[in-house]
Design a protein around this nucleic acid. Sequence first.
DNA 1: CGCGCTCATGTAATCGAAATCATCGATAAC
DNA 2: GTTATCGATGATTTCGATTACATGAGCGCG
Lengths: 347, 347
Amino acid sequence: MPRAWLVASVAPMATIQDVALDAGVSTATVSRVFSAPELVLETTRKKVMEAVTRLGYEPNFAAKSLRTLRTEKILVTVPDICNPFFSQVIRGVEEAALAAGYSVLLGDTRHEEAREEQYAAMFRRKEADGLIFLGHRLPDVLAEMVATKGPRTPIVNGCEFRPGLAVSSAHIDNEGAAAEVMEHLYALGHTRIGVVTGPLVSPISGDRLAGVLAAAQQRGRASALRMAIGDFSIESGLRQAGELLDQPSPPTAIFCFSDEMAMGAIEAIRRRGLACPRDVSLVGFDDIRFAQYLDPQLTTVSQPMEQIGHEVVRLLLDILADRASSLQNVTLPHRLIVRSSTGPPSS
Amino acid sequence: MPRAWLVASVAPMATIQDVALDAGVSTATVSRVFSAPELVLETTRKKVMEAVTRLGYEPNFAAKSLRTLRTEKILVTVPDICNPFFSQVIRGVEEAALAAGYSVLLGDTRHEEAREEQYAAMFRRKEADGLIFLGHRLPDVLAEMVATKGPRTPIVNGCEFRPGLAVSSAHIDNEGAAAEVMEHLYALGHTRIGVVTGPLVSPISGDRLAGVLAAAQQRGRASALRMAIGDFSIESGLRQAGELLDQPSPPTAIFCFSDEMAMGAIEAIRRRGLACPRDVSLVGFDDIRFAQYLDPQLTTVSQPMEQIGHEVVRLLLDILADRASSLQNVTLPHRLIVRSSTGPPSS
DNA sequence: CGCGCTCATGTAATCGAAATCATCGATAAC
DNA sequence: GTTATCGATGATTTCGATTACATGAGCGCG
């Protein structure tokens, strides 16, 4: 009743005091009913719960958070929420977080450093207990934090792995996966292979490129590689694959570092009146939900996206619960999925 | 220094007290430097800001939130984060929210009522200032809240429009758009048209269906309609379009209520050795990023997804700022995008 | 019978910032 | 010269929960 007019003629949310008064107990008891029910007598507990339902009480979150210094929130920053790969990782994160009683604060950084820093500040303001970042950069303020606080800093990296960052992470063996792709293409008889990478600043690209080079060198085909640098987007796949195809002796197979770029590549191939895989074989990366519904169905590397999400939350919760004193860099299994976009070269 | 050992040998975040002490002013002044800088003398402000940077101070969020009763967060629940349509709406929401100083709490409900209720409770706990829901259901506790508090309840609906819910919303004219699609197909000469709807409980499906029926009746073709109920997923598109195609006299055109279902339909057509649009024309809905890269490129209805996101945030901010006293149901423009998946019937 | 122990509960300090009210010096008005 | 006014800042209460500590009833045991 007291604060009624503050909220414009609307029943204000009852506070713990109201409940205590209504139930005829102290606020401490009400609090205990929620956080340590075993300490309070069955009969009192019932009395309190009745008051709670009668008043429609929900503990005020800010107050609780101020006192306990915990927010039960995880901040997740992602370079591009519209990328189906990331959205599936996020689904995994969200699921695991919810199961552990945490909720997810979403930060779509759009690959922009400025936004990353905005979210870093948010984290420093303690708006979240932990940070999961799915990109490859860690803003300076947070790097400092990691440097002083060490492996117990509640910051975890997903999808990428950059040892210098000194944070725990979950990801696949990008180098190995890329090498497998190359092996697959070499085994089919391809020799001139084009590669559309992502931005080379990201370890994800660097690692895959290393795998590509290792496999090529082992076959003595390194000099027959053709490289183009994309940015993981459909459009860049269209453009870069196009440039590879327009070269004097074009590759007979193209390996794109993302399924989206492969979609662009399919279009580039089509526009040139070529057929896939007859004229050009094509491999993607990620195995997003749509890969198997493209025409041709896309050969690609399947990443366990939801599992990455789960794992990354597990790592974070370990840190928050003070288990896990050392860094953990978890490598999850990937799988080369051979579909109809790859075949032997025609010539 | 006092709380140093609480946080395991790590410099604890400085508080407003520390800053006040360091700058030789009161906490009130420090607070004012942030929330009402014009009230404090230039020189003092500088002194304070120096202390702030020296100590790396960031105002504690929970404390601020407790005092002001504002969280500067928006809870966004979405039926399926992995759906590219929704992820683009979310991008719009996130962008508009960030620009207004709000951040986004993400709730992936997976179409499950139980999860919707979990997030409803979170909202009642005041973990967010406002709620944007992109599904079609509103949990009972929130419906009650709307009933008692009226149009100033900070709850807004995106994408769907169900008048009974009595909340503001932003969406397209689904009925009109669906009618346009039918007109397009009739104009091409199709008479037997199949429709793959979404779940009929969602207004989005109901409205589109109404548009379909209206257009069909106007042409006197209602009896030639064939209906199948999907759930917006690729798999259901594959299945339901398949069933339509397997009927005795199959439709010459299929209209799917989502691009994802259309992707499934493309596959269903392909599996039956038919060609699109030669044997069957196909129309989707949403114009997700991938629609134009499918084979054939998909004719579809383009929704302004990011704009829906922006608009829905604007509506919410209006409510939060106590502008806007009455409900607003905003209809945003859609556009029929004719691509190569539709053409005249062959026979 | 009284000491100590346990269990249930109450009392009150506390978290960190915001906001109201008080204060104080300086200026302006009369 | 006295007083009302104003501008800048300080002192203090407040937000709503958690939690360490205090209390007191009930009980067992010597």
